[in-house]
């Protein structure tokens, strides 16, 4: 096992590049993260309705639904779910749009797994802290 241990983190990963989702799922699962795959925006929303997640990793450019659209819906469905944008498009503007819509952070492809793990960890901590505050 490598990287920061993130036991019991429930992660939803959304990307229309199936190979990418698959390999990333393998690698993250190996590191103790509970990963659910979604190959499209619709699948992602479906999964969200069925399960509760700690962190979401979202691609911005997808065949059926634009990542930004998905993000908007997600912000409504689960306002406290931290979303990490992972995009192949290096366009800062798209990522910045995501940030203004309330994404937790963003990364550009290809990225180091270590980096992604760190961001997931930070997102998880942030969510926990938020929950802690709200629970009080």
């Amino acid at each position: 096992m490598k990287g920061t241990p993130l036991p019991h983190t429930r992660l939803l990963i959304v990307d229309d590049e199936q190979s990418f989702v698959d390999v990333l799922t393998n690698r993250l699962s190996r590191r103790g993260i509970d990963v659910v795959k979604a190959y499209s925006g619709a699948q992602a929303l479906q999964a969200l309705r069925q399960n509760i997640f700690d962190v979401m990793v979202l691609d911005l450019k997808m065949e059926d639904m634009d990542g930004i659209e998905v993000l908007k819906i997600v912000r409504k469905m689960a306002p406290d779910l931290p979303v990490i944008i992972l995009t192949g498009h290096g366009s800062r503007t798209a990522a910045e749009d995501g940030m203004t819509l309330g994404a937790f952070d963003y990364l550009t492809k290809p990225c180091e797994l270590k980096e992604l793990m760190e961001k997931i960890s930070l997102a998880r901590q942030a969510k926990n802290k938020q929950n802690g505050e709200t629970n009080k």
Binding site: E17, F20, R27, G88, K109, P110, L113
Partner: peptide, 19 residues
Amino acid sequence: HEINNPVAIMVEEAGWMSD
């Protein structure tokens, strides 16, 4: 953009192999 996606997969696959 088109290149970034395949490269990302390649890099991840290499990482998987290393795992």
